[in-house]
């Protein structure tokens, strides 16, 4: 353990005059699973403090099941935190009470869901969702203006011809087309911050690049911030300013994307980066190739949650939970062994 400030985000926020657009403080969400005597507590998100600045794209990567979507859902107020607080433009979200306040927050911070098959209402044409959103969140627009705006955002995400695609039912669209409908809906709201949960996972590389360029362009020309949840580390590098890596409900490492990629400090980040495949190079599978294992988030015991897979684990790792601490300026890792100098390498 260290005595460094646990709330790095707040410290950093204080450094800038305006503060971050959004920050979380000790955000935690547990779920009860099983029933009767096999009742257990699943720690989906544990003590996560992060910040998203104005005009910033923050990529959130990490293990499948590590809590990324849960964080997005907490930020979108779909889930309530078990503990911890979220601040948007300095105001705690727990203070949002009225329907108007919630509506305003939802239009400023829309979410694009990971599974576009279950997040679009199958009963209505795709125009329905987006027009309804526009009516609710941008009441100043007239009916023809709403239709024009819907067509405009559909074109922007490559759903062409927009007028025709808008008339379709969700089941008449392919996976990647539905995924872009979700993104277009968020875009139409003129958001401040888009919570984009794997928004390009079903897109071919060419359309994917188009959407990534669009996200960068939204940031650069309209000052939109994006929480970009992804498994595609190369795409995170392509557009993100900062990268947060999650493991088993906790932040393992966070920092400027180039710094984290160039010198990953947490052994899990090193493992993750070493596994990023290069289509042009032959696959390297060695006897020690990590086979993965279920993250231990159900009734977890104290200590580092990565220790069973970690070649660097020391005694301390099995009883003290490592806190996120600053190793380099703006570059944090939660590991007892990680040091500021780049000497230590577990994988890769």
């Amino acid at each position: 353990m260290t005595d460094q400030a646990p709330d790095q985000a707040a410290a950093r926020a204080a450094a800038t005059a305006t503060g971050p657009l959004l920050r979380t403080d000790g955000l935690t969400r547990h779920f009860r699973i099983g029933g009767g005597i096999s009742r257990k507590t699943l720690h989906a998100v544990d003590d996560v403090s992060l910040a998203i600045g104005e005009r910033e794209i923050v990529a959130l990567a990490g293990e499948s099941g590590s809590g990324k979507s849960t964080i997005a859902r907490l930020l979108a107020r779909i889930y309530q935190p078990t503990s911890g607080e979220i601040y948007f433009q300095g105001e705690p979200l727990s203070g949002l009470r009225s329907r108007e306040q919630m509506l305003r927050y939802r239009s400023l911070v829309p979410m694009v869901f990971q599974d576009p098959f279950s997040s679009i209402n199958p009963v209505f044409r795709v125009s329905h969702g987006i027009l309804r959103g526009l009516k609710l969140h941008r009441p100043e627009l007239s009916k023809p203006q709403r239709a024009a705006e819907a067509a405009r955002v559909f074109e922007t995400v490559g759903l062409t011809p927009a007028a025709e695609v808008l008339q379709r039912y969700p089941h008449e669209l392919s996976g990647g087309q539905r995924q872009r409908v979700g993104f277009a809906q968020a875009l139409a709201l003129r958001p401040k911050l888009i919570l984009a949960d794997e928004p390009v996972s079903m897109l071919d590389v060419s359309i994917r690049i188009g959407l990534l360029n669009l996200m960068a362009e939204l940031r650069d020309s309209q000052g939109v911030s994006i929480l970009y949840i992804t498994h595609d580390i190369a795409s995170a590098r392509y557009i993100a300013d900062r990268l947060i890596v999650m493991y088993a409900g906790q932040i393992a490492e966070a920092g400027p994307v180039e710094d984290v990629l160039a010198s990953p400090r947490h052994p899990y980040t090193q493992l993750l980066l070493s596994a990023v495949p290069d289509p042009r190079a032959p696959l390297s599978i060695t006897a020690e190739t990590d086979r993965g294992e279920p993250p231990r988030v159900i009734d977890p015991v104290p200590g580092c949650r990565f220790r069973w897979r970690c070649p660097l684990a020391i005694d301390e790792c099995s009883h003290v939970t490592p806190q996120l601490r600053q190793l380099l300026p703006d570059h944090d890792a939660a590991c007892h062994v990680a040091r500021a100098d780049a000497g230590i390498r577990a994988f890769g």
Binding site: S64, H231, I233, L272, A275, T289, G292
Partner: peptide
């Protein structure tokens, strides 16, 4: 495997 991290993906 579109929703899997690269470590899990490779292992799978």
């Amino acid at each position: 495997t579109s929703a899997l991290d690269v470590v899990a993906q490779r292992s799978l």
